[in-house]
Design a protein around this nucleic acid. Structure first.
Lengths: 206, 206
DNA sequence: CTCCTCCTCAACCCTTTGGTTGAGACGGAT
DNA sequence: ATCCGTCTCAACCAAAGGGTTGAGGAGGAG
């Protein structure tokens, strides 16, 4: 019995490519395509694919991570493999946490995609060695847990907002903003707003 | 006589998708595939395709813009269409300046790709309305021309460096850094280092 | 109830930044 | 020879940012 797979990617070209790729394989059958996370969730509800091959960026709607979480909550839950061009640490970690069975970059060979898919259908995990390394690194160096408010401040910080502007935006006083900033600096291990934005970008917090 | 096209994309999946797409079209014939800019330039030299369909990001080597410039310098010069996921203003402007006949986003329909390709083969330009708008906007609001030194300062600014750190890095005094910064702020039309980084990122200067 | 986290705010101090003016040196263009 | 753009630097001032201490209220967990 062939493995059934649902393709999720907002780029028609990529979907076409994947479909063409699996058409040459006897044991993989594409049972559906979705251009958004919402569509994917709805389709999976009916199609019950063995595996969902999902991009991380999905246009305007929900992203691949949220889609993965929703899919994994279904009964029966399909295996989800993330197939994307981006390889930032956070993305990978978030995807794994959400229940993804694998994380592939789009520059891998078609053969790898097919074999990964089979592995996932068997219930296995699919992580390229470099990916696996990042996962354990991510576990070892846990990303600081920022509170919701701190994240809001960080986001505004990224736009170049001054303390006064941040205060106005969040309906608090500058004193409060400064307090959040001090906590933020401490958690990110930096000593200036500029560096905070810089490291937040690097680590993917922003 | 069918239009000959060379596909350039570092993702095998995308190339497969495009190839599958054109296989259904009688008047378009894929004559080659390249996974890098260097490979594309070498192949075009021999194949003389009518059109080159090229991604902007091409892995580690030269990018799509440089590839476009090199291709347009060949005799006869193929038409070049940029097909990418990114739509930052600078990228588009740079691609057009380099001689691209079109700029498409990967989320367009397959039909659009085919028709755009034909248009380019006829010597025409292919710009989606929103793209065209950005181009004229880009012409109207010319990106500020920063000097080399100012760019270095801007780059360091992006890493969150303080004036002191920038000064050390560039082997000048803080006074000089401040002078550069004032010029930078004026050219970018901002009033703080944070905002400077923010708009530089938005406009693609950084 | 009490401990703890998070969010809020204030007063104080010192450092860094941003803005201004002015100026010397160098190289290329006219 | 002269102008112009670029890079360099200095001195000065006002504003913003960063660091500290302390503290009150709201809400959840034990």
């Amino acid at each position: 019995m062939a493995i059934t797979v649902l393709l999720v990617d907002d780029h028609p070209v990529v979907r076409t490519g994947l479909r063409a790729l699996f058409d040459n394989s006897d044991d993989v059958q594409v049972v559906g395509e979705a251009a958004s996370g919402e569509e994917a969730i709805a389709l999976a509800e009916h199609l019950h694919p063995d595996v969902v091959l999902c991009d991380l960026r999905l246009g305007d709607g929900i992203d691949g991570v949220e889609t993965t979480a929703a899919l994994r909550a279904q009964q029966p839950a399909p295996a989800v493999i993330i197939l994307t061009t981006f390889d930032r640490d956070v993305e990978i970690l978030r995807a794994i946490e959400a229940g993804a069975a694998g994380y592939l970059l789009k520059d891998v060979s078609p053969a790898t995609i097919v074999s990964s898919l089979k592995e996932a259908a068997r219930g296995g995990m699919v992580l390229a060695p470099e990916m696996a390394k990042r996962v354990v690194d991510g576990m070892r160096h846990p990303r600081p847990r920022l509170t919701e408010r701190e994240m809001e401040v960080l986001r505004l910080l990224g736009t170049g907002a001054s303390n006064r502007e941040i205060a106005r935006e969040l309906f608090v006083t500058e004193a409060t903003v400064k307090t959040h900033l001090v906590h933020l600096f401490s958690k990110l291990n930096v000593e200036s707003r500029a560096k905070a934005v810089s490291v937040a970008r690097e680590t993917g917090l922003l």
